Each structure stands twice: as C-alpha cells, then as structure tokens.
Simulated scan of single mutants.
Amino acid sequence: MSDTTPAPDTTTPADTAPAPEVAAAVPIPETPAPGADAGAADSQEKKGDDDAGDEPQNTLTRKFSDAEWTAVKELRAQLPEIFAEAYAAKEDKQAPVTLWGVQIDPASPKDARVSVVLIKFLRARDLKVAEARKMLTDTLKWREDFKLAEVLKEEFPEKIFGGLGKIYGKSKDGHPVVYNIYGGSDVNAVFGDVDRFLRWRVAFMEKCIEELDFENVDQMVQIHDYEGVSMMSRTPGQKAAASQASALFSSYYPELLSRKFFVNVPTVMAWVFWLFKALVPAKTMEKFSMVGTGPKVIGVELLPLVDAGELPKRYGGEALGWD
C-alpha cells in the first residue's frame, strides 16, 4: 500500500487533486518479483521445507528458503526483547498483540502466520536481522503511539473520503485489488486537515490488509488512477500528506505489495516516474508499471493479471465496479 506505499499513498484528488504517489511511493522497498526459473523456485521451496523441521507450515511458509527460515527463527527468538523495547511504557510488556490480524505472543510465537509476518520485515531489510528487528520494534511502537485502535473506530466523512479508495475484486492469483482514485475530490476538504487525512489513509490500509489471510495470500495489487489530476496547483496540504504518507507506509507496512499500476497518468507525472527509476531498487521497480490512458490501453496491462469479470469496465474489464 509499501507498500507499501500507500493506496492513496500521497493519495487523493485531482485538479483539486493530490500529489502523485508516483514520486512518493517509488522509494518503498518491496518483495522481489517471482523469479523466472520455476525449477530453481521448486528447489528453494524444498530446501526451505527441510530447514523448517517441525515448524508450523502454511502455503506461504513452504516457500521460504533456508536463509529465510534461519532469519525468521533468529528474529522470533528476539520477540521478548522487541516487545520490552516497543512497549517500555506498559506495565505488561509481554502481552500478546495483534498485527495485521495475526496475534503475536512473545511467549509462544511459533505459528505459521507469525512467520509470514516476520519474513516481511526481514525481506524488507534483505534478511539482516538487526535491521529487521529495529523496523519491527519501530512499527509496534508507532502503532501504539498513533493510537491505531482508536483510529480504526473513527468515522470519516463519506462525502470527503468515500471516493478516494476502493477494494474491488481479486487478481488471478487471489490478491485483493485496491484502487486509489486521485481525481475529482475536493482537495481543500481532503487535505485541509493533514492529520485527519493520514488517519483515514492508515485506516484504509488496515482495511485492505483485512483481505489478506497470511496463509495463502499476504500481498495486494494496487492501481493508482490519476485521471483528471493536475500537477500545476498542488496545495501545501497535498505536499505534506504525500511526504508523510510515503514515509509512514515505507517504514511500517513492509512487503504488502504484489504489483502496482499507475494508470491515466499525466505526461509530467510519467517523466517524474522515469526520473525516479534510477533511484529505486530494481526489485521494487519490477513491481511498478506505468500505463497509458483509456480502458482499452489499461486493459492490455491489467487483464493478464485480473479476470475481465473482476476488472471494472473503466479499466478495460467487464465488471460494473463501484459505479
């Protein structure tokens, strides 16, 4: 989303539009795209199974390599210390917590879904355990400081935020498809309160993550639609939201993105995209696709990934979408 960049990472409107997520999302490290050598992948999966020993398994953990299992076990062993640091202000620093719908108990962390969560932090840091530990610690602390539980209960005005993000359909591989729609909203209403926008953005990302089971699917497809977006009149609120959202999702939502498509992109934004290309890790760029304008052109790129019945007509499919 980060992702992770963000569904609307820099999210939102158009001529009253938001800053493009193109520039904001580009620096986010993501999981490498699948390798082309199926035989090598099968071999790696078998080795991972061997190294896992009596580890609880699911579809995703069976794909771990030996090196990944070694890193997971090392990071998992440090969970009591990670919790003690992240929750230093709490009386019970070892209480189980739920991260992305997965309960992590430092006293009993041997669980396949927990392994899937931990590998995300490790992959985002090239399996460097110390760096992954810091990222996980910072994430847990941020969620506490951000008061995420309260944010998820907050009600955001449908008139202002209702059209910015949509979850619709799944890819052929079962990944939920998330649409970030930047055009047609009231920029002043959306970005007049940057903190509120960020709370909405985080809540939307968490809603997207609810579509992942961390057993068979642990990533999403993002489609960022810039139809009608003007780059000539960005407000200070838009710029601040873009910068802060990008930093937030790259820091606290690792490896949740399968593919990201930028569609209906203005020419000036396409240039920004290509300028950033040289600054972004190759494995991240493999997930990004800059697509032209119009259903037919967009469909050529998306239909190999998403069945026509799951893809809205405006993007070249046959589904009604949310219209």
Rank of each mutant, 00 (worst) to 15 (best):
W322I: 09
N264H: 11
D138N: 05
E155A: 15
W322R: 03
L275H: 13
E301Q: 14
K313G: 02
S115A: 13
S171Q: 00
A89L: 13
A14L: 12
E211K: 10
P304Q: 08
D42Q: 13
V194S: 05
G184I: 05
L320A: 14
W142P: 00
A270Y: 01
W200M: 04
R62G: 01
V190C: 02
I181D: 08
A189G: 05
P32M: 04
Q219C: 01
T4V: 14
L75M: 10
G294I: 09
G228R: 10
P176I: 00
F262P: 00
W100M: 07
E81K: 15
L303P: 06
W142M: 12
S243F: 14
I181Y: 07
F121H: 03
R62N: 07
D3G: 12
V22E: 05
G184D: 08
M285T: 09
A41M: 06
A84G: 10
A88I: 03
A203C: 01
P29R: 12
A14E: 08
G174M: 02
F214L: 06
L140F: 11
V202R: 07
P109I: 05
V177W: 00
P29F: 04
L152N: 10
L256T: 10
R314C: 06
L75Q: 05
S243T: 15
V116F: 00
V72P: 09
T139P: 04
A19F: 13
E255N: 15
K141E: 13
L99W: 11
A23D: 08
L118K: 06
A67S: 13
E55M: 12
L148H: 10
D186M: 04
K128L: 03
R113H: 06
A77M: 11
T267N: 11
V178I: 13
G101P: 05
L320C: 06
P34C: 02
V190N: 01
G321M: 01
G101Y: 08
T12P: 03
E150T: 12
R314H: 10
D213L: 04
E74G: 09
G228T: 09
A107L: 13
K239Q: 15
A19G: 08
V190K: 03
S233R: 14
D9P: 14
Q103H: 07
V263G: 07
K120R: 14
A84F: 06
I209E: 00
K128F: 04
V229F: 09
I181S: 03
S233L: 11
N188T: 13
E91A: 15
L279D: 08
L248E: 09
A17R: 10
K313S: 04
P96T: 03
L118W: 03
V178G: 01
A77C: 07
A71V: 10
L257Q: 13
V190Y: 03
W142Q: 10
A25T: 12
Q44R: 12
G163W: 06
V114Y: 06
G101T: 12
L248R: 15
E215R: 05
T284G: 02
V268W: 11
V291G: 04
A77H: 07
A132R: 06
